[in-house]
Design a protein around this nucleic acid. Structure first.
Lengths: 360, 360
DNA sequence: CATTGATATGAATCCTACG
DNA sequence: ACGTAGGATTCATATCAAT
């Protein structure tokens, strides 16, 4: 059931997928653009937007009903730890977001795709619509989901080395990347940029995960998934997109990388104070100091601290010693010990201990 | 009923306002942030977000009902030519947008306020939420609304001189602009930047218009309105905000400007071909040429053109002569006439004619 | 090959006053 | 309400031909 393209309607296919079997969903549903007539450039040429039969709906309640159906199924097949991305624009994203919240999805972020090269507003009738919106959500409020924070930081082209924000800059899909039909015309009216899908899959899934796209189109989601070593299930109603998409995927291979493996986000080994005392990295009875050099507390054999006659954990103790309103802070950021005539952060001591574990 | 602050609840006050009496509405409703517990920075200090009593709701349907009520009233009191802006974030904007579309509002644009200095995500648990969303809408699909396109162009700090897009960069409200209470703490947890309100009011209303804000808070909307010569009706439930807001408004005066008056958007005088022939700017029977210098058509007394034996209007004729797919293009951009031994654009001729009208 | 200029095009809720 | 004529309006890129 992996790495397949299903040439059928999502509303009939999604119910066939097993309960809680999918790690990541990317959905690029019909937007229901509601355009009328032809839009003409000043020079007299026509703008070719999205005027496909698959984007037509008869009414708002019709569109709501369609949206409710596929969102309901997606929630059923999503793993508890999985997450879903949905892209849309003004015309549809409010319907989508509102139904998601009603269905119990919990929104993680909404993300703005700020297009670097949007179609201008030819007539000057309103603001140039230069973005689309992505909603990223989980099944339930308390769900634990995959998010590679440091991978996202590494991928943050908008502000290198800083945490990734909710506004992303990407050009629209054009040029060589854009699939053409046998007449040389664009195959699909709304092909999404591969780079955006790669970012999404890299930060919110793991190697080997299964990615589902219920409106797969030109298989951009599958292309990104394959490149990053994820499995994929693509559902697409139009045969022509499936055919061209399958061909596209043949030329794509897994490219292993730190990003694909999310190696920046590998959690350091969990170690306990007691363990480090045992290993001789801390000594029972030694003094814990703050950066000011004053001795505040005394280390106990179990890793707790003796402070003003009471035995408390070092995180609570740090907040107390620093006289903070907060009850608890990360003691590894505040406590020092004496080594020779120097003050050493206990974080450094832990780092040294962890390094010995890596070697063995 | 102008330039007033009403210290009361919007749900009771909006129904008292007359039908179709408001030109522009800006609404910054409670977002229902659904925060829990205390968010602590790494150093142990507490982040002071929005935890106000006015932002508490018991359930999604409760919030939907509240939203439906004020949006319904706003639609009732909005003039047919008026428009409404609503700001919100992920937590609420999908509910708001979806209800707006259900109520029959027609969206003009959604606009992203991309914060230049967002609060970081302290825990690294998700993407840094660095934007809020504004929805700009009219009462009905066919409604004509005020939009000063060229004023927007002039105000476009993101890309000077180009059409304004749907992603706006503004810093969050801070420093001197941020109102403080008697203890020196921020008066209001969600004060919006004045510059953003000025932009909104400048591009979507006229001098003398009435601007309504049903959740007026620190009266930023009124401040921008007053500065730009608009009238205002502010509704705010909390007395303390009304008091500080009234004081704030005392120090603000109307600053006249081309932007305030939207002078870039003044429409040129409408003139007809027949009128210009009458005035001698064109001569009946003279030849109309394209840029290539070939004679294509012959001017008739009523301003129409004789082309290949048929009499047609010059816009349709231009499309024909240029062999375009389009049925009609602006003839003033394509036709030339001979003046002496030079080719002159008929747009230039019209410009000359218009200049004589200005003098008299 | 590098540079320049002309041309094509992208999820678009894309005109309006007057008779 | 609807037809007609007047008149206003685009930006970043990619491609390709010409220099």
């Amino acid at each position: 059931m992996n790495n397949i393209i299903i040439n059928a309607d999502s509303l009939t296919e999604l119910p066939k997928l097993p309960y809680e079997s999918i790690d990541l969903i990317f959905a690029d549903p019909p937007y229901w653009m509601r355009t009328e007539g032809v839009l003409q450039r000043t020079e007299g040429t026509e703008f070719q937007g999205c005027n496909d039969s698959w984007d037509k709906f008869s009414s708002l309640s019709d569109y709501e009903s369609f949206t409710l159906q596929w969102l309901t199924e997606c929630r059923r097949i999503l793993k508890p730890s999985g997450s879903i991305w949905v892209i849309g624009s003004m015309q549809c994203i409010y319907t989508i977001g509102s139904l998601m919240q009603r269905l119990g999805y919990w929104l993680i972020n909404d993300i703005i795709w700020h297009k670097t090269n949007p179609t201008p507003n030819f007539m000057g009738t309103r603001l140039n619509n230069s973005h689309e919106t992505l909603i990223w959500a989980v099944k339930n409020k308390r769900a634990k989901f995959t998010f590679h924070y440091k991978t996202a930081k590494a991928l943050n082209s908008e502000s290198q080395g800083h945490q990734m924000g909710s506004v992303w800059r990407f050009p629209v899909c054009s040029g060589n990347e854009r699939l053409k039909d046998s007449n040389g015309h664009k195959l699909h009216s709304t092909q999404k940029p591969l780079a955006m899908l790669e970012r999404i899959i890299a930060i919110s899934s793991n190697i080997g995960d299964t990615v589902l796209d219920p409106f797969a189109g030109t298989m951009t989601t599958a292309a990104a998934a394959k490149k990053l070593g994820r499995k994929y299930i693509m559902i697409e109603r139009e045969k022509i997109y499936c055919d061209y998409g399958a061909e596209r995927l043949e030329n794509i291979t897994f490219e292993d990388s730190e990003i694909a493996r999310a190696e920046f986000d590998v959690k350091p080994l969990r170690v306990s104070m007691a363990e480090m005392i045992e290993a001789g990295y801390f000594v029972e009875g030694e003094k814990f100091l703050l950066a000011d050099g004053k001795e505040y507390a005394e280390l106990q054999s179990d890793g707790k601290l003796l402070y003003q006659g009471k035995i408390i954990d070092m995180h609570t103790c740090a907040a107390l010693a620093k006289n903070l309103k907060a009850k608890r802070i990360n003691g590894f950021d505040f406590w020092y010990v004496r080594r020779g005539n120097k003050l050493i952060s206990i974080k450094t001591v832990r780092e040294n201990y962890r390094n010995t574990l890596k070697i063995t």
